[in-house]
């Protein structure tokens, strides 16, 4: 089993200009790890951290650290299972596919704004995450997408408010 499955370069239109303005590519070397976790018998499942702020161009690595279950990291986007878009319009949507224990998936986030994503088998349980890339005021910044009311109750409740994530600062683990 290969430890790294796939890498997606999420370069959107306008991303290069935004990246230059915010100091990328120097910052693009940064890799942030988000673990997929579960309780031993699967009563609960979550992303850890489930909310994080990262610099523009950061590489985010999702790792399944749950020995007993499979998880996905899947962007809310019409191109991926027809969901309402909850990532910046310039961002490339991603779907890790099912990651078995120990497997990982990487994505580079180059469009500033708010990215919401979920785990396919655990969305109803509330296994969702939010990544804030850059900060409000960055060129091309797109904040939280207006709620479309299409999220399961537990998923909506699991999304940490953007201002809290911004206030905590880049890569403050939650």
């Amino acid at each position: 089993m290969s430890p790294t499955r796939r890498t997606v370069l999420g370069l959107g239109s306008g991303a290069v200009a935004a990246a230059l303005l915010s100091g990328w590519p120097a910052r693009a070397q940064e890799t942030v790890t988000i673990a997929m976790k579960g309780s031993p018998r699967g009563e609960s499942a979550w992303f850890e951290p489930n909310a994080i702020a990262v610099p523009v161009g950061a590489r985010v690595r999702f790792v399944n650290e749950d020995a007993g279950n499979s998880h996905t990291a899947t962007a809310y986007h019409p191109d991926v299972f027809g969901r309402a878009r909850r990532i910046p319009s310039a961002a490339v949507p991603w779907d890790s596919g099912f990651l078995l224990p120990g497997e990982s998936f990487e994505v580079v986030l180059s469009a500033p704004g708010v990215y919401d994503y979920y785990c396919i088998p655990h969305e109803m349980h509330g296994m969702v995450g939010r990544i804030v890339v850059g900060a409000p005021g960055d060129p091309g910044w797109e904040g939280e997408q207006a709620a479309k009311g299409d999220l399961p109750v537990a998923a909506q409740a699991g999304l940490v408010p953007v201002d809290e994530i911004v206030a905590a600062g880049p890569e403050a683990n939650r």
Binding site: R41, G42, A45, S70, P121, H122, H125
Partner: peptide, 16 residues
């Protein structure tokens, strides 16, 4: 008997 949050195959929350 215990609660399970879901997994591939039985993706909605269920009892084991």
């Amino acid at each position: 008997i215990y609660y399970n949050a879901g997994h591939p195959g039985v993706e909605s929350p269920h009892a084991h």
